[in-house]
Nucleic acid binder design. Structure first.
Length: 577
RNA sequence: GCGGCUGUGGUCCAGUGGUUAUGACAUGAGCUUCCCAAGCUCGUAACCCGGGUUCGAAUCCCGGCAGCCGCACCA
């Protein structure tokens, strides 16, 4: 059994995650989170909120998981997110149709399915495997399609990313942030991709959870005001050039920007924050690197992209976060399709004064004379070069017709104007987190097997605050006189909102091991000494050491241990083994 | 989607065309003043689904589903 198998087996058995629809034989690409998994996921998401919603001040919103067709027309997912496929009628092999005509057509992407099929027939393309006849070309779109209301009048799709929710709410968000850049909005939620063949458990799902931030910035400056906070952070970078050499480089964030390895401060800033977040949820920093996308693997919207990758036992390096500079691609696309103005007026620090020659046609005279065409003629006059305005009569051509206008009907004056700012379409920096993959990584990187004497101890070394259970309360024996005081402590934890488990079954050692396996950081045991002097033992998951503390301090001590305010060895009197 | 391998209690595994499907671990109840998966007693619990062959199928055959490996796919 390799690590992947051990972790998924444990996760299944102890209630972290289960294949969905098992009762009816299952469906690939879907997973349920069990009691411990759902809690673990919530905690991973809550820490994400602490970093990005609270730490960065990005507003969290929640949008429908179903989107109407226009959204994905604009986003490019309707055309760019699908592949033209063809099938061999003989051997049933399936091919990317555009790949088969690559050597004939320069840009097969630009062709429709019908056009590709026509090219294939004209060139007698047959199955590369068996030479059989190929079927008509059909589009396989990775989006799940549905319809709003009865009939098929309003096609809709399950969203393939949460990002579009932030883009289409851009005007509302901009208003919410009182018309000023930069600002960010985030969403944590489900997305859907109808993968052709999902495998590897929770790593490639058809329904998955994303946490995405869309940070709208002024495109004129990609500096970050808090860059100094992360400048000295060192991490492993695997840039395009480094990949050519096959050599990962460790360097500081500041150096990466200075050397132009990461394009700009803002992208680098979020690479750094992503690193901090991943380490804070329990990703092993020695199995974490940031890899730059090569030009040909970039998504259709991205200008630059860095992935956080983790090393997993069976699967190798796996992407868990993508940090992309989406530039103004999305906002411009939505502007073009919706005709809405998705730009921001940015004020200059100082208004700029500028002199300008203004041509003013006399509309009182032009209006009655040219009626409906007056406006077009006036505009033509205004756009004329001054040199054309010297003669007594001015000739203007509008829509192929030439009009003669007396020079006296046009006045030219110099005006001074104040320019206070300009309209810009913001660029978007997008850190996009795959929550399910992060959760699996946390499980695998937390998994430890220890060999004590001749038995194995399996421990999930979750960081405090991540583990699904905060503390277990264990009466040494299943006796009323021990259960009663134990219950009191258990209730005290619950009243304080801490997640405690109460367990009387089996021997104390067995219960410790059970809690090790689900990563409970501390166990409190109530024994006969408790009845005499009111103390209980606290056992530390990682060292298996114990201390004695007063039962009345149990809640405070555990809370401080979990928050890191208190160190275990100083929290109480040590218990000799 | 294609090809190969696989599918037995919660987990790991044994097994056979024919009585009541083997075991370990886990799990439930109980006993044991029991601090690191101890012991004892008694329980609960499975042949992936559908069809076919057969007197009889969990076993053989076909199809489906799921998992693993390879190919393709993964904007």
């Amino acid at each position: 059994m390799d690590r992947y198998e051990q972790v998924t087996e444990l996760a299944r058995r102890r209630g972290f995650m289960w294949p969905s629809f098992e009762l009816y034989g299952g469906a690939a690409g879907f997973y349920d989170y069990g009691p411990l998994g759902a809690r673990l996921k919530r905690r991973i998401e809550d820490i994400w909120r602490r970093f990005f919603v609270i730490g960065e001040g990005f507003a969290e919103i929640e949008c429908p998981t179903i989107g109407i067709e226009e959204v994905f027309k604009a986003s490019g997912h309707l055309s760019g997110f699908s592949d033209p496929l063809t099938e061999c009628k003989e051997c049933k092999e399936i091919y990317r149709a555009d790949h088969l005509i690559k050597h004939i057509v320069e840009v097969p992407d630009a062709l429709s399915a019908e056009e590709i099929y026509r090219v294939m027939r004209e060139n007698d393309i047959t199955c590369p495997e068996c030479g059989g006849e190929l079927s008509e070309v059909y589009e396989f779109n990775l989006m799940f399609r549905t319809a709003i209301g009865p009939g098929n009048r309003h096609p809709a799709y399950l969203r393939p990313e949460t990002a579009q929710g932030m883009f289409i709410n851009f005007q509302r968000l901009l208003r919410y942030y009182r018309d000023s850049l930069p600002f960010g909005a985030v969403q944590i939620g489900r997305s859907y991709r109808n993968e052709i063949s999902p495998r590897q458990g929770v790593i490639r799902l058809r329904e998955f959870s994303q946490a995405e931030a869309e940070v709208f910035i002024d495109p004129r400056s990609k500096r970050h005001p808090r860059f100094s906070e992360v400048r000295d952070l060192r991490l492993r970078l695997y840039s395009r050039e480094a990949q050519e050499r096959g050599q990962v480089e460790e360097m500081s964030i500041g150096e990466a920007v200075e050397r132009g390895i990461i394009a700009h401060e803002i992208l680098a800033y979020f690479v750094a924050r992503t690193y901090e977040y991943l380490v804070a949820v329990g990703v092993d920093r020695d199995r974490l690197r940031f890899r730059q996308h090569k030009a040909d693997e970039m998504a259709h919207y991205a200008a630059d992209c860095w992935d956080a990758e983790v090393l997993l036992d069976r699967l190798g390096w796996i992407e868990i976060v993508g940090i992309a500079d989406r530039t103004d691609y999305d906002l411009r696309s939505h502007m073009a399709l919706s005709k809405a103005n998705l730009s921001v007026f940015v004020h200059y620090p100082e208004p700029v004064r500028r002199k300008r020659i203004a041509v003013k046609p006399d509309m009182k005279a032009l209006g009655p004379r040219f009626k409906g065409r007056a406006k077009a003629i006036a505009e033509a006059l205004q756009s004329m070069d001054l040199s054309n305005l010297k003669d007594d009569t001015i000739k203007v051509t509008v829509d192929g017709e030439t009009y003669e206008i007396e020079r006296s009907l046009v006045s030219v004056e110099e005006i001074e104007e104040e320019i206070r700012g300009e309209e810009v379409v913001p660029h978007v920096i997008e850190p996009s987190f795959g929550i399910d993959r992060i959760l699996y990584t946390v499980l695998e990187h937390s998994y430890h097997e220890e060999h004590l004497e001749d038995e194995a101890r399996v421990v999930l070394r979750f960081l405090p605050g991540i583990s699904p259970v905060d503390v277990a309360v264990l009466p040494l024996m299943d006796k009323d006189e021990l259960i009663e005081p134990a219950r009191k402590i258990f209730d005290a934890f619950r009243r304080c909102g801490m997640l405690a488990e109460f367990d009387t079954s089996g021997s104390i050692g067995r219960r410790y091991r059970r809690n090790d396996e689900i990563g409970t950081p501390y166990c409190i045991t109530i024994d006969y000494q408790t009845l005499e002097d009111g103390t209980v033992t606290v056992r530390d998951r990682d060292t298996m050491q114990q201390i004695r503390i007063g039962a009345d301090r149990a809640v405070d001590v555990i809370r401080d241990l979990l928050s890191g305010a208190l160190c275990f060895s100083e929290a109480g009197a040590p218990v000799k083994a």
